[in-house]
Amino acid sequence: MNTLAAKNASISRNGRCILRDATVSLSSGQLLSIVGPNGSGKSTLLRTLAGLWQASDGEVLLNGQPIQSLSRKDVAKRIAFVPQESLMDFSFTVGEIVAMGRHPHRGRFSRETATDREAVENALERCDVVQLRHRLVTTLSGGERQRVVIARGLAIDPEFILLDEPTANLDVEHGLEVLELCSTLAKDGKAVAFATHDLNAVARYASSVVLVQGGKLIDAGDREHVLSRKNVEEVFRVRAELVATDEGHPVYVFHRRTENYQSVSE
């Protein structure tokens, strides 16, 4: 069982505290969703967990060890981070980009091994981009790019996969594909976390949820508990309606608050 945990972690950038006292834990088989409005600190929390940003207070523990005490390469072997926007200015092929996922496993002078090639093949297949292998990334659509970047993360063969707004640039079909993939990865024993503001995606796929607002954790735990109508209405400042579906998970319908709106909590 692998665990990645933030303990009372705070992050300051340019003198401003953008994440305060966050305690979150992610372990094998879990599909955790970090939810909150724009600028609430979702991405910050994800980067902190990935060890990319160093906590100014508190700490992040990878299987009990402080993440800052591990080398960048050791962390990269175990945690894949999939950014929301990827820079694709140079015309590498999809195959080259996905093979970069093997970097943390390769020595400076070592050649590509059979294990490397196998991991790349698996990643290409899982993300359904085998047929794009020889395409230049500069010619891909947004959705194709996103799947290629996820494939690069999977090529690492990591224990933890952290995705920042993985469905933000995708159409409905590919968005669902990516979420299904996250769900399958979690079932296969990986620890998966994704940041999003798409509550319906969360309602359908995530097993546990962290709700953030203004750099603070509002609530964490089971989906039903955290995404209660009261929490959603408070954090997203809308009027929410929960509609049951045939598949069992609820669907949120949002309405702008009107003048004579009364919160459910009142």
Partner: peptide, 16 residues
């Protein structure tokens, strides 16, 4: 090659 993908990506792939 990694730096051409952006610094954050390079770091997440194990580059100091």
């Amino acid at each position: 090659d990694l730096l051409q993908q952006g610094e954050e990506t390079a770091a997440s792939l194990g580059l100091d």
